[in-house]
């Protein structure tokens, strides 16, 4: 593909048995985009992210990433995942490793970075995420917000071209949500390309370059935050926004 898009999906379809969980997904992500996927639980946001990272196989359609069709079964999924970072709702840190080791595992074992360089980079990231003093702690000694910030640092420690965030604040207290959103704003400000499933409408409104409203496995409507939040075209989008936006 000759266009400049970092990621492009065409007619992506995903089913679990008889249940269609994603249909006709057409999504284009340009470098430095922050794409927010919004919609009710079960609308397919998380599944879409998992398909993009090839953690799930798609049933139809195609996904292009950095000019390569990654939905082709012959593609080495590990090579693709090396170029993407994922942060999960439940952090999924490795409890038997220290914070520092959580950050250096993939750089050392997957990217062949020597351990001195990997540690230096990890400490630098922890520093900028306000976690410098937590490097040698184990994850279970940290608060939820701190753990999620470590998970973010771990995902970007390998310098991915694309960061996928799956409702990363959904498991946190409102108080702790703020510190994680702060990091996400910071990353967006640095030009990190992100696709995120989120319920944080104010974050989507302020930071997103594009907002996609998913309903029943389809992207019902997509556009700039202004288009989606101020003048939604679809009745379903209006209904959803009425429910989630403070009046």
């Amino acid at each position: 593909m000759s266009d400049t898009a970092l990621l492009r999906t065409e007619n992506v379809r995903k089913t679990y048995g008889d249940k269609v969980v994603l249909r006709d997904i057409d999504l284009v992500v340009q470098p430095h985009d922050v794409v927010c996927l919004i919609g009710s639980s079960g609308s397919g946001k998380s599944t879409l992210l998992r398909c993009l990272d090839l953690l799930e196989d798609i049933d139809d359609g195609s996904i292009w990433f950095e000019g390569q069709e990654i939905s082709d079964p012959r593609v080495d999924a590990r090579a693709v995942r090396r170029r993407m970072g994922v942060v999960f709702q439940a952090y999924n840190l490795f409890p038997h490793l220290s914070v520092l080791e959580n950050l250096t595992l993939a750089p050392r074992k997957v990217h062949g970075v020597d351990s001195t360089a990997a540690e230096a980079r990890a400490r630098e990231l922890l520093e900028s995420f306000g976690l410098a003093d937590k490097a040698d702690e184990h994850p279970d000694r940290l608060s939820g917000g701190q753990q999620q910030r470590v998970a973010m640092a771990r995902a970007i420690a390998t310098d991915p071209a694309l960061l996928l965030l799956d409702e990363v604040t959904a498991a946190l207290d409102p108080e702790l949500t703020g510190e994680v959103l702060e990091i996400m704003r910071h990353l967006a400000g640095e030009g990190t390309t992100m696709v995120l499933a989120t319920h944080e409408m104010s974050f989507a409104r302020d930071v997103a370059t594009k907002v996609c409203f998913l309903h029943d496995g389809a992207i019902l409507e997509q556009g700039t935050p202004a288009e989606i939040f101020e003048s939604p075209r679809e009745e379903r989008t209006r209904q959803f926004l009425r429910r989630v936006l403070p009046t």
Binding site: D53, L55, R78, R81, R82, M84, G85, V86, F88, A90, N92, L93, F94, L105, A106, K109, V110, H111, R154, A155, T158
Partner: peptide, 16 residues
């Protein structure tokens, strides 16, 4: 399984 998912997402092979 989320531990394996996390490792896989980081690019680790099944063996790793």
């Amino acid at each position: 399984p989320s531990q394996v998912a996390s490792a896989t997402a980081l690019g680790l092979s099944n063996g790793q």
